[in-house]
């Protein structure tokens, strides 16, 4: 870990501020409306997000439950795609966004765009890292290398079902942080903090010093309080997107939602 990509350094620093658990809102580019991306990114920062995860829509999101599936369908119907989402990220940076951003997209859209070209363009647009939910550590070599070559941090995922060997492989791939999946299942709002999530966080800490961001099923302040000291960050996706569905001003609603979590 002698020469971390600059994006990974920025992400790790943003998650290490403490003492409160870092809040990482997940937004879908182009949701709830095509032009909502920039205000939502700025709103997330204003609300106190440590890092923002920016999702790009895909027609067949295998790790997502109904809420994010629906948000993706809405975004696709607005014509959202990789190039347009990156342009919106660039616009948010131009408008003063300073928190680190991790892009989250399934593999095929960026495979078609070209992995190396994607990492270069994402870095140029102001991304700090990348997360690909259908790219397990075994297959992630080329993507992680392309990320590093462009200065982006790479985020690897671990799940409650991951064996010690798989956790070690993910830790070896990741440069920025480890995304810990809180439950055996797909994304979607939930309650409480599952036992399997706490057990996973413990196994991950034993295997790697990287920051741990827990996600899937989180959306209430009491969940984040319960995670205090057990994870460095909490990713909040479906619950936020549900709050944005009817919001007259998505940017303001994002800021308010994130602020209430802190």
């Amino acid at each position: 870990m002698s020469s971390l990509p600059p994006g990974a350094v920025r992400l790790q620093a943003a998650l290490a501020v403490g003492p409160a658990i870092a809040v990482v809102p997940y937004l879908m580019a182009g949701y709830p409306a095509a032009e909502a991306t920039v205000p939502c990114l700025l709103g997330a920062a204003a609300g106190g997000a440590a890092v923002v995860e920016l999702g790009f829509p895909f027609s067949d999101p295998l790790a997502d439950g109904p809420t994010i599936q629906h948000a993706g369908q809405v975004a696709l119907a607005q014509g959202m795609g990789v190039a347009r989402a990156l342009a919106q990220l660039r616009a948010a940076r131009a408008a003063g966004l300073t928190v680190p951003v991790v892009t989250m997209t399934y593999l095929n859209p960026i495979w078609q765009y070209g992995l190396e070209r994607y990492c270069q363009d994402a870095a140029a647009a102001g991304a700090d890292g990348l997360l690909i939910p259908d790219l397990p550590a075994d297959e992630a070599g080329p993507a992680a290398a392309a990320a590093t070559a462009s200065g982006l941090g790479f985020v690897a995922m671990v799940a409650p079902t991951s064996t010690p060997a798989r956790i070690a492989a993910a830790a070896a791939r990741a440069t920025a942080f480890l995304y810990c999946v809180a439950r055996t299942g797909v994304t979607g709002a939930g309650d409480g903090v599952p036992e399997e999530a706490l057990a996973l966080l413990g196994r991950v800490r034993a295997a790697s010093p990287l920051p741990r961001a827990l996600g899937f099923g989180l959306g209430h302040r009491d969940q984040l309080v319960a995670l205090q000291g057990r994870a460095e960050a909490a990713v909040v996706g479906s619950a936020l997107l549900e709050a944005l569905a009817e919001a007259p001003d998505p940017g303001v609603a994002t800021a308010r939602f994130v602020r209430r979590l802190r």
Binding site: L107, P136, D138, A159, T161, S162, V181, G185
Partner: peptide
Amino acid sequence: GGQYVPETVMPALD
């Protein structure tokens, strides 16, 4: 070919 799936099912594929 390959295995492009969420990590959660990778142990089952293994």
